[in-house]
Amino acid sequence: MGTKLISYIMLDGNAREAIAFYQKALDAELYGIQTFGEMPESPEFTMPEEAKGLVSHAMIKVGDSELMFSDAFPGHSPERGNQVQICISSADVAQSQKFFDALQEGGTVIMPLAETFFSPAYGMVTDQFGVTFQLYTEGKEEC
């Protein structure tokens, strides 16, 4: 698979409501939903109780396109206008690194590109124009 861009909607605790709305409004199929509480535990981080039921990642399919969702982690609420992000999905770590390096020039790294439990290379960066990108490299079982 080549590179593709996927819209990623960040919400403030109402991702499930938005997913249900878009499923109905856009005749979409739910592909998966995971909460922060379902993520693997980390010895370096204790998950706050108020985060456990929030959506950490979900995806619906609308025709041939995907739309992804997440609730913002407590304390990191999105503001109206910045809740839609672009997820760049690639099958190649080197390609993800190239995109990440280019996008961070003049921008701000939110999460360094690194291996996670769901991707061999995942990171987030806001570019110099204020657009936030998530770089997702395929290669691990999707969440």
Rank of each mutant, 00 (worst) to 15 (best):
T3L: 12
S7I: 08
M10Y: 10
G13Y: 00
N14W: 01
A15G: 01
A15M: 01
E17S: 08
A18L: 09
A18W: 04
I19L: 10
F21S: 15
Q23G: 07
K24I: 04
A25G: 07
A25D: 09
E29Q: 15
G32T: 12
Q34C: 12
Q34N: 11
T35W: 05
G37Y: 11
E38Q: 15
P40H: 12
P40Y: 12
E41V: 12
P43W: 08
M47R: 14
M47G: 10
E50M: 08
K52R: 15
L54Q: 04
V55L: 02
A58W: 02
M59I: 08
I60E: 00
G63S: 10
D64W: 03
M68N: 04
F69R: 02
S70M: 08
A72T: 10
P74H: 13
R80I: 15
Q83A: 12
Q83G: 15
S89D: 06
S89M: 09
S89P: 02
S90F: 00
A91W: 01
V93F: 08
Q95P: 06
Q95R: 14
Q97S: 13
K98N: 12
F99S: 06
F99W: 11
D101A: 12
Q104M: 13
Q104W: 07
E105Q: 11
E105C: 04
E105Y: 04
G106I: 07
T108Y: 02
I110K: 00
M111D: 02
L113R: 01
A114I: 03
E115C: 08
F117H: 10
P120H: 09
P120S: 06
Y122C: 01
G123R: 00
L135C: 05
Y136P: 01
T137G: 03
E138R: 09
G139F: 06
E141H: 10
